[in-house]
Amino acid sequence: MNNNPYLPELATVQEVITETGNIRTLRLTLDNKESMEKFTFRPGQVGQLSVFGTGESTFVINSPPTRRDYLQFSVMKAGEVTSRIHQLNAGDQVGLRAPLGNGFGFEEMKGHDILFVGGGIGMAPLRTLLLYMIDNRADYGDITVIYGARSPKDMCYTYEFEEWRAGGVNLVLTVDAEFPGWKERVGFVPTVLNEEAPSPNNRIAVVCGPPIMIKFVLFNLKELGYEDPQIITTLEKRMKCGIGICGRCNAGSKYVCLDGPVFSYDQIRAMGGEL
């Protein structure tokens, strides 16, 4: 990044993928070739994506640092910026301030079994770490992914599930209710988690999804014997500066934009503050 942390770099949309009715994925490259070549980040770090005239919003870079042809962001339509992002087409220019935030502690996860639990758009932050691990498969033990969505058409990244499986991932897919043609699991994510019951021994669980899912997944993980430091999640807050200055995304004394978005559960408990 340049020495003015508020100044975005220009980037161009290379491809837009419609994931679901309200989620789109954008693949971007920085316009400055040299910046693009030098761009490095940790899985789980975020970027502030701007559509000039509407504003900025924070998204995790969900492509892994091991795959550098483009930077990928998945955006669920919710407010003014995300609605505007959904109107973007290949060739459009946007601004990007990245990488920001802490990212996942993938170094410490080496040698461990990994459990990913994702719901809906919550798969996006998990995807970057998952692909990183697939690309460094020998460094990690068993990788189990439990991914759920309301229905098959609410599921993101369906086009790469085969690749994930081929990469040595135990992929468990589930939807909330029966759906014609659906051959995978049916049931809420926390229930499927209990059915799978991945052993907490030497395992780290990485969880991301809607608050209600997180709540029950957490409960079940504790039942399964997972300790707080073994459970990792990402927090979301309304953000503006993205660099720990503007003051709004605090949870206790931590700034989600700067100290997060990745936190372990013991850290979250220690910080206090509103979530």
Binding site: S50, F52, G53, T54, G55, K240, C246, G247
Partner: peptide, 18 residues
Amino acid sequence: YCFSITDETRNLEGERLR
């Protein structure tokens, strides 16, 4: 010191305001 950042536009140009 808490601040907001907004884009304020008029036609095809504008500014990012703190």
